[in-house]
Amino acid sequence: MITAGVDIGSVGTKALILEDGKILSTEIMPTGSRPKITAQMVLAKALAKVKLKPDDVRHVVSTGYGRRVVDFGEKTITEISACAQGVKFLGAPKGTVRTIIDLGGQDIKVITLDDEGNTKDFVMNDKCAAGTGRFLEVIAHALEIELAKLGELALQAKQTITINATCTVFAESEVISLLAQDVKKQDIIAGIVDSIAERIAAMSNKIGMRPTVAFTGGGAQNIGLVKSLEKKLDTEMYIPELPQFINALGSALVAQRLQSLR
């Protein structure tokens, strides 16, 4: 019984192949301007990795902002439910997860779970991109640094500076003016990361965060952000092995349930 979950995010499209609760393969690609085709390609690649044919997959469930454009999915669920399902499935070595922070390309989500692991409440940022993955991307571009290195550089900061602007565009200008003042890149990155952590912490506190906190999405790969957020929330966070694929995992799990219903 093989199922697949496809998560069409604003930045990356992810696919995950699941067989009876075992992850067979994952694949990620930039979403680009044609999410429908990207989704097909990413699923095909994920299948090819484990030498499967599309016919081997019993059910496909799609999620993410592009969930409705794909034509091969049998069901769509929102990334909030998918995320909750994924985290519930993985469990947590650090205790039962009650709060999920998901930092994606264009959204920050904070999801609280009830004692059964179902969604109890959630908050998302407004249409503004402040503090999202996109924000990090813009800053990395302004600093001419690879996105993936941002986290480690943040940890090397010697002094703390505060970034005041929360708007992506204004924050970019602020970064540029800090560069003009000859502030070290590491310090700037630490400032940026702190400002994002602050924002996420405010959202988490508002919704009533309870430990254990899981951190998922692309943002969870940024070690600097993780450390800063742990300090702000005063709790240790659980970061799943493949933080970007949690939503795809969640939808693949939902696909398996379709099976059992049949």
């Binding site: 902002y65 929102t78 990334e79 909030i80 179902n118 969604t119 409440d121 249409k127």
Partner: peptide, 17 residues
């Protein structure tokens, strides 16, 4: 009308919740 998709996600997630 530009945020219709974001709204849809929020409402849909709320309904799922």
């Amino acid at each position: 009308q530009e945020d219709v998709e974001q709204l849809r996600t929020r409402i849909e997630a709320f309904l799922e919740m």
